[in-house]
Design a protein around this nucleic acid. Structure first.
Lengths: 263, 263
DNA sequence: ACTATCGATTGATATATGTCAATCGATGGC
DNA sequence: GCCATCGATTGACATATATCAATCGATAGT
C-alpha cells in the first residue's frame, strides 16, 4: 500500500505529495474551502474544548496554509507507533482507535478519538517518536499539521501553550484512571467502565453502534476476547444491556455504575 | 497530625503559615540562603533536564520570592489525592513515592521521585484537583511553588511553556509504558522491569538500597506482596540478584532484560 | 531475659482469567 | 445452491496469580 510507506517516511515531502495528489484532491479541497475563513477554529466550535479558539487570525492563517486535509478509509493506519512524530493530527470526522502495540501481537487500545480530537502527546514534544498507533475505525477526515507550526504557535501565543498543557494533562489523567481501573478491577468492573465510556463519552447516545469487533472491545479492557464475550453475556442475562452485533443498548446504567465501583 | 489538616486546606494561608513556622524555620532558611542567587535553577543544574534553566533572572526572582521550602519526615504525606492542586512541588532531596489510590485499600505506586523531580501533572492545569498522592519515603526537602506563579511564567516565557510540555509528555510516555508493561507481562517480566527501573533510573548504583518495603515494591508492579516475594526468591535462586533486606544487588542485568522481553 | 509486634517468608488452596478447540451463523463468491 | 471464510460464541481445561493462614526473625519495650 502506498500509504504505509508514506507513513514511515513522511518527513520526505515527495512521498507526502504523491500521496496527497493520489487522494482525490478535488473532494479534499472542496471540504477545505467550506471552512476557509476560520478553518481549524471552526472545526472545534461546538462546545468542545478547542485549543485553537485562542489563536489570532494571523496565527490561524499560519496553520491553515500548511495543513494537509487527508481522508482515510476504515482500517487504514493514520499514525504508526515508532515512526517520526513530525505532525499533530486533528480528527475532523470519524472514529479512530489509539493503540499501544506491545511485544508479540499484544495490543492495548488506549482510547477512541472522534470528531474534534487532537492527537498530540505520546512523543510530539520530546523524542519525536510516536508511542502509539492510530487506526481508522470508520472513514476518517483529518488534518495533518506540521509539528514545527505548533511549536511556533506555542512560542507566539501563551494562551495556546496553556491550552496544550491542559490537553496534555487531561490525557495524562485519563490514562492514569485507565491504569488504575485495569490493574485494580475484575473483569465485570472493567467492562462496565468500558460500556459507560462508550455510551457517555464517545457515542453520547444510548443504543450506540460501536463499529468495533469483540476483539477490539476486549483490547480496550486488557482481556481476552472470549472473556469479554462471557461478561457481556452475563450482562445480557442480567438484563443490564441488550446487544445486537456491534450495537449495544444500556438498559440499567445504575447497575453498571455499581459493578464498576464494586470491583 | 497538624500536617494532614494543613494539606487538606492549604489554600488557607493561615494554616500554611502555621505549619511553615512550626517546621524549624532556621534550618529551612539556611538551606535557602545557600542557593539564594539562582535558587531553583541551581537545584537543577547537574545535567538533569531543568525546566527552570530558561528563566531570566527576574522570572526566577518571581519564583524564589514566593516559594516555600518544606521539609518532610519519612512517611509523611506531601500531597494528597483529591485535594486542591494549588501548588507545584519540586523535590530537592530525598525519595518519595507517587501513589494512585483506588477504591478500598488498593494502591498503585506509579513511580518514584528523587532529587530534582518536578511534580506537575495529575491535575495542575485542569480541574485543579490532584489525581495522586505523594508520600515521603526518606526525609524529603522540597519547594512548594504557587501554581499561579507557574501560570504566570508560562504566559511570560514560551520556552518555559515548552519545557513544561516536554515534561508532561515525558510523564505521559512513562505512564503509557507502565500501562503496557503491567497489562501485557507476567509477573517475572514486571519484576525485572521494576528492578531495572530502580537500578538505572532511580538509584543509579548497583547494590542499591530501595528503602521500600516488599509491600511497596509489590504495589509498583500491581501484584501481591506474597507473589512479589516469590518472584524475588526465584531471581535469587537463579543467581540473578542478591537481596539483603531492602538492599538489592543486580548480578545479571542481561537476564533481567531477557525476562523483561519474554513476558 | 521475656514478650509483643511487625515485616518477611513460606505453604496450601482458591479463583479469576487465559488457552485451546469446536461449533455456529452470516456473508460472499462461483 | 454449495462451499470457503471469518467473526462470534461456547465449552473444557490449564495456569497465573490471589487469598488465607502459619511461621520465622528481628526489633523494641517492660
Amino acid at each position: 500500500m502506498v500509504f504505509d510507506c508514506f507513513l514511515v517516511d513522511y518527513t520526505e515531502n515527495e512521498l507526502f505529495n504523491e500521496y496527497y495528489t493520489a487522494m482525490k484532491q478535488r473532494r479534499i479541497e472542496e471540504a477545505c474551502v467550506k471552512c476557509k475563513d476560520r478553518c481549524c477554529a471552526r472545526c472545534f466550535d461546538d462546545g468542545e474544548d478547542s485549543i485553537f479558539d485562542c489563536l489570532t487570525k494571523e496565527e490561524l492563517e499560519l496553520l491553515v496554509k500548511e495543513k494537509r486535509h487527508i481522508h482515510f478509509k476504515a482500517g487504514e493506519t493514520i499514525l504508526k507507533q515508532n515512526t517520526a512524530a513530525s505532525h499533530v493530527v486533528c480528527i475532523k470526522q470519524g472514529l479512530a482507535k489509539i493503540i499501544a502495540e506491545g511485544d508479540g501481537d499484544k495490543k492495548l487500545i488506549l482510547r477512541l478519538v472522534t470528531n474534534h480530537s487532537i492527537l498530540t502527546g505520546g512523543g510530539v514534544f520530546i523524542e519525536e517518536i510516536r508511542h502509539f498507533t492510530v487506526q481508522a475505525v470508520t472513514e476518517v477526515d483529518c488534518c495533518f499539521i506540521d509539528s514545527d507550526k505548533i511549536y511556533e504557535l506555542v512560542s507566539k501565543n501563551s494562551r495556546f501553550a496553556f491550552e496544550l498543557l491542559k490537553l496534555n494533562n487531561k490525557q495524562n489523567i485519563q490514562m492514569l484512571n485507565n491504569l488504575v481501573g485495569i490493574t485494580q478491577k475484575y473483569m465485570p468492573g472493567r467492562v462496565s467502565d468500558l460500556l459507560l465510556y462508550l455510551k457517555n463519552e464517545i457515542f453520547r447516545s444510548n443504543p450506540f453502534d460501536t463499529r468495533l469487533s469483540r476483539q477490539e472491545l476486549a483490547d480496550m479492557t486488557s482481556m481476552t476476547m472470549e472473556s469479554f464475550i462471557r461478561i457481556l453475556k452475563e450482562f445480557k442475562s442480567a438484563g443490564i444491556i441488550t446487544v445486537d452485533g456491534s450495537n449495544i443498548h444500556v438498559l440499567d446504567e445504575d447497575a453498571l455504575n455499581l459493578i464498576s465501583k464494586k470491583g
